[in-house]
Write a protein that binds this DNA or RNA. Structure first.
Lengths: 339, 339
DNA sequence: CTGTTAGCGCATTCAT
DNA sequence: ATGAATGCGCTAACAG
């Protein structure tokens, strides 16, 4: 079994009795190469099944045409959708996508950053692990001229490029919608207090209530750790209030589903005794007997696309003269679920 | 704004007044380098923040320490889970993971293969697009010495390495389970006929029926294209049979859900008038009012892990003397859904 | 229009 | 124990 060496431009040059640079230029359709030569070169290249060795090109060009994507969990629909958007943009620009899951572990996140940096990816897209406080490992990338764009779980700092869901807008929609349905006591189930989105949601909630001249009752705002048990606890708190909410805004569909399940165990009928609106708009809600009344679609693919486009811009822009960091907000859309 | 060049071994060598080869060896803990030199080199490397340029190493070593993963849709839980298994193994071996979604499009699959081949990935893990018939684009990789391992959606041919769900075992479990529940007329909704799993499922089905001395009725075997509409058509065919099935084995949970929804529109109650067993065991079934009666867990992560381990073996084995292709079967586990 | 040459950063073979 | 030299495949600056 002979393992023939892969053809190189050198080989082509030799066979044609011309120089490697001519071959290289012919292959790149350089204007100064004669049509005849071009044709000969291309034909032989075709015959030999020549394929440029990208590793040599990467090395030479100091570019890998690869972007890295770091996110917590690929298995979450949101992130899988975001990746698709990223991949699409990347491919349109002839870029490849390297992935790394942090599993919400900061150390893992750092390790991935290091690996990608060594790999010389041309840029990185990140959705932060939920425990990441310190951003030094990202700042360190500046030295390597590797641009970063954050999405979804973005840092608070404004000196980073980021793309995120427009929480005030989405929450405003949700609450207005619930009020339109006659609800006046609206409960909230947030994620952990540390999450930026929890604060944003609460703030918007209060703003809207205030604008409508409604009394703000902070006992209606609960927090949970996103687990089934945590959700149950939060619900317990809410429904045992002296004046329990008639509707609840939940951080995401998963939590809403757990909450609905908890209600069921307490003989509270969803969409009758109590109503839910949540974020994400998971496709599975279509299969549910009793889904949340509505869900705010967050357009994961759009977020991925936006992040990737910014990154491609950064990669192709003047490294020495970077524009101010961009901060894109993606507006959600309230989707009512038919029952 | 000065963009300092990244330090190289050359730089270290110069500053220390020694040769690059010594530096290289020191950094690699080569036995013939003096402890003193080693220490000096390492210290300066540390100080300078030296990081080897992987692109140079890739080029030089003719290895990229990167594996490519091609699969239909990342958004399907099964594939997301498989990727996690793959990533884990890859990282343990210091490998990176490049992804490409075929979106079940053969042309896209070919394009990804080409890109990965040019990128000189060290190996590729593939789950076939549902329409892939011709395997030439995979066979072409042999020439480049790029090993391939297929998983889940694997080709029929035995000259490829593959890891797949043990369909006979799983289907046997499913059918036996349904029979234990008293069902004698069991319908099947397969995927497209091109998919190997369709044939396997049908074959096992027939085998079991035969063993139980039950009449085999091939009109009970339907095929669908995995879309909602295709599923509805398949169901239509099955329930309008003169003797319709009392239970149905569906290729996966998604299809089962669509089928159940279709039944509902026809006033056929799931888990009463008709029963379903499917493959995958998606977590969402826990939230359904009326889930499939049972589902066969396919252990996606385990499949990913197995595939990646085989690939790492292949990558690290003698290219000229490859072992016979391996064919691993992962056994499923039937999970009953409580209602 | 085409050829010659240098060099990217590193590992490695061959000297010493 | 260390250094010098080579080359991986390609692009591009420079030279005709």
């Amino acid at each position: 079994m002979i393992s023939k060496k892969l053809p190189t431009i050198k080989e082509i040059a030799k066979q044609l009795g011309i120089s490697v640079s001519t071959v290289s230029r012919a292959l790149h359709d350089h204007p100064s190469i004669g049509l005849r030569t071009k044709t000969r070169v291309r034909q032989l290249a075709e015959e030999l099944g020549y394929e440029p060795n990208q590793t040599a090109i990467f090395f030479k060009q100091r570019k890998t045409f690869t972007i890295g994507v770091i996110l917590p969990y690929l298995i979450e629909d949101f992130f899988a959708g975001a990746i698709s958007g990223i991949e699409k943009v990347a491919n349109d620009h002839k870029y490849n996508v390297l992935i790394g899951q942090s599993n919400d572990d900061v150390e893992r996140e750092k390790a991935i950053i290091t690996a990608m940096k060594n790999q010389r990816v041309d840029g990185i897209i990140v959705s932060l692990s939920k425990h990441t406080k310190n951003l030094d490992h990202f700042r360190a990338l500046e030295k390597y001229q590797i641009p970063i764009v954050f999405f979804d779980r973005v840092p608070a700092s404004n000196d980073f490029n980021k793309v995120a869901f427009d929480m005030p807008h989405g929450t405003h929609q949700a609450i207005t919608y619930l009020m339109g349905k006659g609800h006046r006591r609206i409960g909230i189930i947030n994620g952990p207090k540390e999450m930026k989105s929890s604060k944003e949601r609460t703030d918007t909630y209060m703003e809207v209530m205030q604008k409508k001249r409604l009394k703000i009752d902070l006992s209606l705002v609960a927090y949970c750790d996103l687990t089934k048990e945590g959700t149950a606890e939060a619900m317990e708190t809410l429904i045992t209030l002296k004046q329990p909410p008639t509707a609840i805004l939940a951080i995401n569909d998963y939590v809403a589903l757990d909450a609905i399940q908890y209600c069921k165990s307490k003989k509270l009928k969803n969409n009758k005794d109590i109503f839910f609106v949540s974020y994400a708009n998971l496709p599975i809600t279509n299969y549910l007997e009793s889904p949340p009344m509505a869900s705010i679609e967050q357009f994961p693919e759009k977020q991925g696309t936006a992040a990737a486009e910014i990154l491609m811009d950064l990669i192709n822009s003047d490294k020495e003269n970077q524009p101010a960091p961009r901060n894109i907000l993606i507006q959600g859309e309230l989707v009512e679920h038919k029952r």
